[in-house]
Design a protein around this nucleic acid. Structure first.
Lengths: 126, 126
DNA sequence: TTATTGTATATATATTATATATACAATATA
DNA sequence: TATATTGTATATATAATATATATACAATAA
């Protein structure tokens, strides 16, 4: 598993790890049932404490992306993440619809939103 | 002006003050143009530092609820939704930025968002 | 001038977030 | 069983942020 940590980024280390693992699950780079490096191995690889790698794995387990068991290791969880993604996309669509309604109410034009979309989407291409 | 502070509440003091002033503006208990107690008077009344009363008034001014001027005092703002709108637009921009970051993390493309923008913006052409 | 108003600066304190070292417990496997 | 590997729990350190204060400053009113 490949993970890059930026020491300059404002994002905390455990957060960077989480994001990249999620990303790799979404893209299929990490597949269902696949074993992740142990917390210690990952910690060593990233020059980070075990607590930090644990924090990332632990959070992702709570979110349904990973499954851990003592002595065995940590693995990509079953189908749930995909359903989870579907669900998250729907949630995001709802938020987007609400946000656009608010924008209209404030008198913003479609062009206004397009401009901001361009700007924000480029953001940080990490 | 009547304000009650709970010392046991988890809400910070300045927040409690803000909420109650907003409430009184909404209910009409405080009316447009009406003078509020000076920061010092309020501070003394609530047994709180001037910085805390200022923090409350200052925030509410930024949000468009109050208007302050040196030597005169602090007053309930008119219904010009001008400041309020500016503030709401900024809030909406922040939300939009966050939403786009989430969308990227979920693997949505800019095109995906554009399509939804088209759909949702037409939504109800009331 | 004098008192009253809001404002700015520097600081203290508490809370929360982040990260670590170290010891512990469960499981795999030689 | 013995040993190594796995995830886990506890206690702690450090940094960042939020909250609140005292005090001095500046503008306006009377």
């Amino acid at each position: 598993m490949n993970i890059l940590l930026s020491t300059t980024s404002k994002e905390p280390l455990f957060q960077q790890i989480k994001e990249q693992i999620k990303q790799q699950i979404y893209t299929g780079e990490l597949t269902e049932g696949e074993a992740l490096p142990s917390m210690r191995v990952l910690a060593k690889q990233l020059k980070v404490s075990v607590i930090t790698s644990k924090r990332a794995y632990e959070d992702l387990e709570k979110e349904g992306f990973l499954v851990s068991s003592v002595g065995k290791g940590t693995f990509v969880a079953g189908q749930q993440p995909h359903f989870l993604r579907e669900w998250q996309v729907r949630e995001l669509e709802n938020d987007f619809e609400q946000l656009i309604a608010d924008a209209k109410r404030l008198g913003l034009t479609k062009r206004d939103l397009l401009e901001r979309l361009e700007i924000f989407f480029e953001g940080d291409e990490s």
